[in-house]
Design a protein around this nucleic acid. Structure first.
Lengths: 342, 342
DNA sequence: GTGAAAGCGCTAACAA
DNA sequence: TTGTTAGCGCTTTCAC
């Protein structure tokens, strides 16, 4: 077997009878190359399967073509959550489409963070970073702010400096729409199974719930608001805690909790939606698997991931001022658990 | 604000009064540097927060310090599966510990594969690749074999060329142990809810099931083997299909299916484990959340991910012959669904 | 429109 | 033990 000569711009140039500069121009799709020369070079590139050396390219061009996706410690434990796999899917697809590679940073220990944060913040390895927002004041945000690394937060932090770029879903209006739908269906004692308020989406969904009630002249009854810890068990327990207060509808801040709620109601001998209507939030697998299928608030997670990449690339290319901040609309999905279809 | 001079080996050298080579040696932890010089350099490195430019390093050293994790198209849709998040966790942790970065490749479309496979197979971007095994003959494997890229398959393909390196869990013996446990508990009509046989783990678990029966003199009854499609609904349906044949125990090839089985049995008015014992496989979240909690076969997924990285690095450093092939033991986890504890 | 040449910041012989 | 030097393969002025 003949040892193939190592493929470089120089080598391709030799084969095509041009200089390495010309090959570089062709490979990078730059104009100002005569059509026939371009074609000749392309042919050689195709035949040899040449791919430019990314390290050399990074070094010379001062850009790596790699985006980082950081899942901080405070959320890494939830990486199994379908939300993240969906988000990661959208992000990775968009990266490839835009010609970038994706590097994943899943932090579980403080040591890992200490070790890697300086490297992440360093311009020469990554061109930009997407950070999944967290509950706590994660050290990653200040680190990135100190650096020149372009970055974008997906979701919002609790304490959000207004000079940060982020994209998020409009949880407030999503929740408000859901509750207003229940109100339109004639429900008046609408309970809410929330998450912990130090979790931003949970807090926002609760705000939306309260807004819907207030604006429709329904008093807010604190007995009808219970923390369900974003778990199915939590939702189950929350529903049990709510039953004595006779709600006629329950709006849960996640599908997972809604599934727990439904199970608790069934176990209590109640029919959903006939006796009590239920509404979830997310529109992930659990919503569709549930029996009855869950009416819920759909987050456009996949599109969301795609947008994150687009916005980040925009930040990388156009500089970082002013910060990009975008809120995406949710969509009300009516299935069987709210009773609208009966 | 003073514009900090760009940090390079040269710059650090100037600050510490040594040449760039010495700084390089210190930074790379090479011996043959006098202790006091080393300390002096380290001090400057610490104070400046210097991190060597990875692109330059890659170019000069002909290695990138990046490992790739490829989730091919045929399995990408299951990325939401807790199995993958756990595996990814193990792999990413091990990468950091070994001083590597991790690049993630989640393929959903053929176009993505066509676009990226040549880049992946190229030595200059990645030092090595971990490929999640797939059902079909995925194009990634032959591509990698044609290249010089070190790679390792996690799990086994159906048609496994014996010159491939892989690590996997011993599904056959895991399943065999589980079924033998049921036999010891006195069960004789043990049914099996399998996955599709073109899925290697499913096929192996079925083999283990049959082995356990044969070796214990129990005839294999094809009526007692039903495909559950690795889904909860599939498990539910499979259990319903099995009931007419009066099994006294059901071994499901995954926890998810086992959960469906349990639900079907409950809905049929049967008690688990009193009327019918149930055993799962995986030991992921569903097993512990189930009511009753599932007895199951635990896969050491996290350790598995860590080992994958270690083996791959070994392949990278020591060359690729002979292929590494390792099978990891499973562990029988006895909870409540099999009746052993009652 | 194309080529020559100067780096990008690092590693690794080889010299000293 | 340390410094000097020659690349690694690419991009990007700057001439032509």
């Amino acid at each position: 077997m003949r040892m193939a000569k190592k493929l470089t711009l120089e080598e391709i140039g030799k084969l095509a009878g041009v200089s390495r500069s010309t090959v570089s121009r062709v490979v990078n799709g730059q104009p100002d190359v005569k059509a026939d020369v371009r074609e000749r070079v392309m042919k050689v590139v195709r035949e040899t399967g040449f791919v430019p050396n990314p390290a050399a390219r990074s070094l010379a061009a001062q850009r790596s073509g790699i985006l980082g996706l950081v899942i901080p410690r405070s959320v890494a434990t939830f990486f199994g959550d379908p939300y993240f796999s969906r988000l990661t899917q959208g992000i990775s697809q968009a990266c490839y489409e835009q010609g970038y590679m994706l590097s994943l940073f899943l932090f579980y220990t403080e040591k890992e963070e200490e070790l890697l944060l300086p490297r992440i913040a360093q311009r020469s390895f990554l061109d930009g970073v997407i950070v999944q927002a967290t509950t706590d004041a994660d050290p990653i945000i200040p680190q990135l702010q100190k650096s020149t690394m372009p970055f974008l937060v997906v979701g919002r932090l609790n304490e959000m400096p207004d000079n940060l770029s982020f994209i998020d879903v409009d949880n407030v209006s999503g929740a408000k729409n859901a509750v207003e739908h229940l109100i339109k269906l004639g429900h008046e004692r609408i309970a809410h199974v929330s998450g912990r308020v130090d979790n931003r989406p949970a807090a926002d969904r609760k705000i939306g719930y309260e807004k819907a009630l207030s604006e429709n002249g329904i008093p807010i009854d604190s007995n009808l608001i219970v923390n369900g810890e974003f778990s199915e068990e939590g939702g189950y327990a929350a529903a049990q805690a709510l039953l004595p207060y006779k709600p006629d509808a329950i709006f849960a801040a996640s599908d997972t909790m809604a599934v727990g709620v439904v199970r608790a109601l069934k176990d209590a001998g109640l029919l959903v939606p006939n006796d009590i209507a239920v509404m979830g939030f997310d529109d992930l697998i659990p919503a569709q698997r549930s029996e009855p299928q869950l009416s819920t608030v759909k987050q456009p997670i996949l599109r969301f991931g795609v947008s994150a990449v687009e916005v980040l690339i925009n930040i990388i290319e156009k500089g970082d001022m002013p910060p990009r901040q975008a809120l995406y609309d949710t969509e009300l999905i009516i299935r069987n658990s709210c009773g609208a279809k009966l």
